[in-house]
Design a protein around this nucleic acid. Structure first.
Length: 751
DNA sequence: GTTTCGTAAATTTTT
DNA sequence: TTTACGAAAC
């Protein structure tokens, strides 16, 4: 439809999509079910705005959930238009905010070279604040404090407001006390954390109404994707920017809200209709992705949640392969089965490896899967886990560049100055920091005059000065040299290759990463951003700070491994959701509240709806957690899925071959009927299954911390009141009635 | 006395 | 992978 989207687009959309795309002025909320073509709607609408209504691209502000999604959308818009939408602001909340803030920093008391602190940087600051106040990290874990502060900021609470909520909770009290000092430290360092990127624009708009007016005028059309995952501050930002033209196009799905733990508020979806009167509501319920079978399973699962906005997905793909539910002995068994099964289907030519994804709840689950895939010779790539920019050597080099761009960045200083080691240790740095604070100078400024630092040993003073000279030399160069040249000079100056090689075999990999960073930086230097007055170095650093796990796209060969969270918004013909065990998925911590459980269920729903053609769901009867093997029960989510959709498998077919050679199979598995073991066997009966009862069975061997080993005699009660009677081997103990919820029984494996 | 290096413990999900 | 702690090395 190149060149004339206006005439073409209508034919390719269904009526609801058409309505959404055609909507020009005023607020609109699009309830877009999974796979309902919302990306197509968003991109088409942008193209239509530009081409048909003559809206200049630079007056459109589009928020996506990842930078990668932003890039893809920009490309699709370009394809529809037949030209680049030059000036279009599209990106994540964080990257768009950072971009806006570069231009407004001075008005907020920052300089435009402000550093974006990641979680580690902020944590280091919090640690020091706690230390200064002699608050023991044992009682006030820095991570917990950080979580409380971050959540407060996401909810736009002031220190006073948080303190008012704290009651007698010391952790919250302390967090509230640290909020303002933290903000002060960040400002001193000319730094903002992720939350600040949302809050500072709001402050700007509050304090400078003229700037609010300016930005409102500039962005006449706002579009927000994944609206269900916006937090309070983000929503306020949208309200502020959309406050004049009110052309806000919000797309979301309450059933896919999975970032509540990060401050996201689904409530924003209903608030939107209240805050933007006259809001048009469009439902996209036609699913273009999955088979009827997959959709039935997903609908059944999510129907257990309460308070949904309501929406039922339809598909035109009847039938489909049944959902395969796999029971395995442990996580290695599970991984092995999946690896073989996917390899089998790939070699049968049914799907390419690239069409497959294995999803899991926690990153730590990837390990067993990786090992199995390697053993099976299956190509794979892991998305997320450790982002490239999170690697130590990369972070070390970036710390130097941060310091070059922003001389006040003390966290960057502290990291760079010890990488590589230059004879300045923790004690010296403590002394030095106190000195610098006394002088009222940043660490870099203080380092320049370190010769005056009596109290530091001469070799330390010397090292600090040399370090400052290096940074200053690089800054001088940074006026004209591209980031890649700075990096090259830096690597040379600190003899980084030799440093890394000296670290041993891992050092070689690290050096490879450094080379990769150089290559990446080289590309960055070439990118010209049309309407942007930022320097390449600033853009490079902002990019590095804001890339997300999901943004990596390198190495597209093989099947994909990622967490369920990262998988949001993506799709594959074949999807395996693994680790479906109570306590893992849903994660035990989330079981404390109904809210938590429902969010986990939405995550489950997200997982199921990633699949187009074929879905595997797997669980392991035991899993290693922190070293020891612990029995598990099938996830309570599974009970919602109608039997008629399911084909049950166990890894039994693998066992026969395994048992001969492999010794890793748990002994009790071999006495259980190996073939055709139904998943359901691990519930005592259907009633209890529906009550989420632990799947203990009579005759099973269990171990108790105090009473030792014994045999299960019977069970009584349901849910939390479930009691198990165990005849312990130790005759002085004998028969005991135990509450399963408290007894912490482990399955006894024998020896 | 300080720095550096080795080992152990811990890690839900992530911008 | 980072942090925390103890021991060896400077």
């Amino acid at each position: 439809m190149t060149g004339s989207p206006g005439r073409e687009w209508a034919r390719t959309l269904n009526p609801e999509q058409r309505e959404a795309v055609a909507h020009l002025h005023g607020p609109i909320l699009v309830l877009a079910g999974a796979g309902s073509g919302k990306t197509r709607v968003l991109t088409t609408r942008i193209a239509v705005l530009i081409d048909e209504h003559g809206v200049p691209p630079d007056r459109i502000f589009g928020v996506t959930f990842t930078n990668k999604a932003a890039g893809e959308m920009k490309e699709r818009v370009a394809r529809l238009l037949g030209r680049d939408p030059v000036g279009l602001w599209i990106g994540t909340f964080h990257s768009l905010s950072a971009r806006l803030l570069r231009r407004e920093a001075e008005r907020l008391g920052f300089s435009r070279q402000f550093t974006i602190f990641d979680e580690d940087d902020r944590l280091a600051v919090i640690r020091r604040l706690l230390e200064q106040r002699s608050l023991p990290p044992k009682l006030f874990p820095p991570r917990a404090v950080q979580a409380v502060i971050s959540s407060a900021k996401n909810r736009m609470l002031s220190a006073e407001q948080l303190a008012a909520q704290a009651g007698f909770d010391r952790l919250t009290q302390v967090s509230a006390e640290l909020m303002d000092p933290l903000a002060a430290r960040l400002k001193e360092q000319n730094a903002m954390d992720f939350d600040d990127l949302m809050l500072h624009p709001l402050r700007l708009f509050r304090e400078h109404p003229d700037r609010l007016a300016w930005w409102r005028e500039r962005f006449a059309f706002l579009m927000v994707d994944e609206f269900q995952d916006t937090n309070r501050a983000q929503y306020e930002l949208i309200k502020a920017l959309g406050g004049r033209h009110r052309n806000v196009f919000a797309v979301g799905d309450d059933d896919q809200s999975i970032y509540g733990w990060r401050g996201a508020e689904v409530r924003n979806m209903s608030d939107f209709q209240r805050d933007f009167p006259g809001c048009v509501l469009v439902r996209l319920e036609e699913n273009y992705r999955s088979t009827q079978t997959i959709l039935d399973a997903a609908n059944a699962a999510i129907s257990r949640n309460s308070g949904r906005l309501g929406k039922t997905l339809r598909t035109r793909r009847p039938g489909g392969e049944p959902v395969t539910v796999v029971a395995s002995a442990d996580e290695r068994d599970e991984a092995e089965w999946i690896a073989r099964e996917l390899a089998r289907r790939a070699s049968a030519g049914e799907w390419a490896l690239e069409d497959m994804a294995i999803l899991y709840r926690t990153n730590s689950q990837s390990r067993a899967l990786e090992e199995a895939l390697r053993r099976a010779g299956v190509a794979y790539r892991i998305v997320g886990a450790i982002s490239f920019y999170d690697r130590r050597e990369v972070k070390d080099l970036l710390a130097y560049l941060r310091l070059v761009a922003n001389p006040s960045d003390d966290e960057g200083f502290l990291r760079a100055v010890v990488a590589p080691r230059r004879g300045v240790g923790e004690t010296s740095l403590d002394t030095f920091r106190a000195l610098a604070a006394g002088w009222g100078k940043s660490l870099l400024e203080a380092a320049r005059i370190a010769d005056r630092a009596t109290g530091l040993r001469p070799n330390v003073r010397e090292a600090l000065q040399r370090f400052a000279e290096l940074i200053d030399r690089l800054r001088e160069r940074s006026r004209h040299a591209a980031p890649v040249l700075l990096l090259e000079e830096l690597v040379q100056a600190i003899d980084y290759e030799a440093t890394l090689r000296a670290e041993g075999p891992d050092g070689l990999d690290r050096w490879d990463n450094v080379k990769e960073l150089l290559a990446g930086a080289a590309e960055w230097s070439e990118i010209v951003v049309e309407d942007d007055d930022t320097t390449p170095l600033e853009r490079f650093l902002a990019e590095a700070a804001l890339v997300s796990a999901a943004d990596s796209s390198q190495g597209t060969d093989g099947l994909t491994l990622m967490t369920l969270h990262t998988a949001k918004g993506l799709e594959w013909p074949v999807v395996a959701v693994t680790g479906l065990e109570d306590g893992l998925f849903p994660l035990s911590r989330s079981l404390e509240t109904q809210h938590g459980l429902e969010e986990e269920r939405r995550l489950f729903y997200v997982g199921l709806t990633r699949a187009k053609d074929k879905l595997y769901l797997s669980w392991a009867r035991a899993r290693r957690r922190g070293g020891d093997l612990r029995p598990s029960m099938i996830s309570r989510f599974m009970e919602a899925i109608p039997d008629a959709l399911i084909e049950e498998k166990s890894t039994a077919s693998l066992w026969s071959s395994k048992r001969v050679s492999g010794g890793w199979l748990a002994p009790w598995e071999s006495v259980t009927a190996p073939r055709a073991t139904p998943v359901r066997l691990y519930a005592i009966n259907e009633d209890e299954l529906n009550q989420d009862a632990p799947r203990l069975i009579r005759g099973e061997r269990v171990r108790h911390r105090r009473f030792g080993s014994g045999t299960v005699q019977g069970l009584a009660g349901v849910g939390k009141d479930l009691k198990v009677s165990v005849l312990f081997d130790d005759e002085t103990v004998g028969l005991k009635q135990l509450l399963v919820a408290f007894a912490a029984l482990e399955r006894d494996w024998g020896e």
